[in-house]
Simulated assay, not measured.
Amino acid sequence: MTLAARIDHTLLRPDCTETQIIRLCEEAAAHGFASVCVPPCYVALATGQLAGTGVPVCTVIGFPLGYATSAVKFKEAEVALYDGATELDMVINISALKSGKADTIQAEILDLADLCHVHQALLKVIIETALLTEEEVVLAAGLCVAGEADFVKTSTGFASRGASVADVELLRRVLPATMRIKAAGGIRTREAALALVAAGADRIGSSNSLALITSTDEPTAA
């Protein structure tokens, strides 16, 4: 698999424009990126732009802070799926996690996973490792497994730091082999991306995707 095929080509800045989203889609189709990840308000636009290309549209739910109510996240997910998204990156309620409300988080993940799977869509759960202790990362990872998510994602890219090799190694160590990992946030070089893949990341989320690939993008380890 090429590195490009592992990358979610991402543009989530609050000042992004329609023109930039269209260019993002063109780049994703040209380079064979795994998906485009766009703000919810641009899902329908991206879906239209990518029709027939085979590139999925991803968007974010409860982003970037995660503490919207479960009902709001569910509705946000419904709208995104209706608009054409087939991958959803949802931020957990970090406040609830730190308050000991694991059951609430697991229920939220399970509800969104059920909704996604009815629509043949993927759910990636962002746990924001920068804000968690190692014990909390392990707890959050377990809740993602119990909630039947498809991926655990390290970061929003809006916290104090993004993904680290140590984060991915820890997740790969505690997660079952069937649970995939997405590393995101602050991945600006090809070397950094390849190190995260080597540590166990199945996907890379980056707004600097073009700098991560080469014109002869070599396959990465399966």
Rank of each mutant, 00 (worst) to 15 (best):
L171D: 09
V60R: 09
G205P: 11
A140I: 06
I126T: 03
V145K: 05
E108N: 11
C58S: 15
A183W: 14
C58L: 10
L11A: 12
V152Q: 06
G100T: 07
M179N: 10
R13Y: 05
R6H: 14
V197H: 10
H119W: 04
V91M: 08
A159E: 13
A80Y: 13
D83N: 12
T154D: 13
A5T: 00
G54I: 01
A80K: 07
I92K: 13
G84Y: 05
I109G: 00
L50V: 04
A192K: 08
D150W: 05
I213N: 03
A166R: 15
M179H: 12
P219I: 00
L11E: 10
S160D: 01
L171C: 10
K182Y: 06
A193M: 13
A96T: 02
A177G: 07
E191W: 05
A113P: 10
A221D: 06
R203C: 03
E26I: 04
A102N: 07
E135G: 01
V165T: 14
A29K: 15
S155E: 14
A211P: 01
G66W: 14
P219F: 02
K124N: 11
P219K: 01
A51F: 00
T214M: 01
C116S: 09
E148L: 12
C58M: 15
V60F: 09
A140E: 04
R180S: 08
I94L: 08
V197T: 08
A195E: 13
K124G: 13
D111S: 05
E135V: 00
N93I: 05
G142L: 02
V72R: 04
G100R: 12
G52M: 04
S209G: 07
I61G: 13
L212Y: 02
G157S: 15
L88S: 08
E135L: 00
P40Y: 03
Y42I: 01
L81G: 03
L11H: 10
D150R: 00
G62E: 06
A80P: 06
I21V: 15
S155G: 07
A140R: 02
A102E: 10
V174Q: 14
R6I: 11
L97P: 05
V38W: 08
R6D: 12
Q120E: 15
A177C: 08
L210I: 04
N93P: 09
M179F: 10
K124Q: 12
Q49V: 07
F63V: 02
A107Y: 09
A71I: 05
I126M: 04
D89R: 02
T69L: 06
